[in-house]
Design a protein around this nucleic acid. Structure first.
Length: 232
DNA sequence: AACCTCACCAACCGCCTACAG
DNA sequence: ACTGTAGGCGGTTGGTGAGGT
């Protein structure tokens, strides 16, 4: 099969987007939706290829994009998911509303990979969880956070959550990757599986990131292990 | 002050998949 | 069933700024 060229190279602009281009794209999408991406730049009067427009919109201009630093919880989720899913950035991004696959990919390559390397030589998960429990969990029992929408920005910022406050280095110390996996027997032995329907299929496309964050947090607290994440 | 190195991240590229015709 | 197109994904690149020498 002969591939169609992604875009007509001649006459189309490349490189960083200007604020004017951004505004043009935003205005057009607000009025008409994006429709056909390849037609969009022509119709909107942009000298960009459709792919570039889509990328700019998806990764930067979409109103629900969350900017700013990743929270500890977000980083932990990325690390745990990556351990099982590998470089499935879009799947990982789907668990973190407001975060894009590109952003997650970047944070992985620039921060998390290093963090894991650094922590491979440090103490194991059980030690960490014991530390967490002894220092925080018993004195600050966690209540079930109320949530209803994955568009709530507190989902990813951690605002208004009842997580016990961990030490600055606690979670980063908790991440020697070889200690993450929980055998299926161990998982079953926790008894959690039958207690909550969410837990039987924690990463189904139907469960949102907020639920998943709660799920993982609770599971780690209950088992003292980072569990193996099942495929779906 | 000038230069160098490194980290960060937006954007591009090429490939794959889904789907319409 | 086959072909072509569009959308989406992951890998990679290159511009920029911060920090160090």
């Amino acid at each position: 099969m002969v591939r169609a060229p992604c875009c007509e190279k001649l006459g189309l602009k490349k490189g960083p987007w200007t604020p004017e281009e951004d505004q043009t794209l935003i205005d057009y999408i607000h009025r008409h939706g994006h429709g056909n991406w390849r037609q969009l730049p022509k119709q909107a009067g942009l000298l960009r290829c459709g792919k570039s427009c889509r990328l700019r919109w998806v990764n930067y201009l979409k109103p629900d994009i969350k900017r700013g630093n990743f929270t500890k919880e977000e980083e932990d989720i990325i690390i745990m998911l990556h351990q099982t899913l590998g470089n499935k950035w879009s799947v990982i991004a789907a668990r973190l509303p407001g975060r894009t696959d590109n952003e997650i990919k970047n944070i992985w390559h620039t921060h998390l990979k290093k963090k894991i390397k650094q922590n491979q030589a440090s103490s194991g998960t059980k030690q960490c969880c014991a530390k967490l429990e002894s220092q925080h969990f018993e004195s600050q029992p966690m209540s079930s956070p109320q949530h209803s929408s994955n568009t709530d920005t507190s989902v990813v910022t951690g605002e208004n959550r009842d997580f016990p406050q961990a030490d600055e280095n606690l979670w980063s110390e908790a991440l020697p990757m070889e200690n993450f996996s929980l055998s299926s027997e161990d998982f079953t032995a926790t008894g959690i599986e039958s207690a909550d329907p969410r837990l039987q299929f924690p990463f189904s496309p139907l469960s949102n990131a907020y639920e998943s964050m709660d799920f993982w947090y609770n599971l780690i607290m209950e088992t003292g292990e980072f569990p193996e994440i099942p495929d779906f």
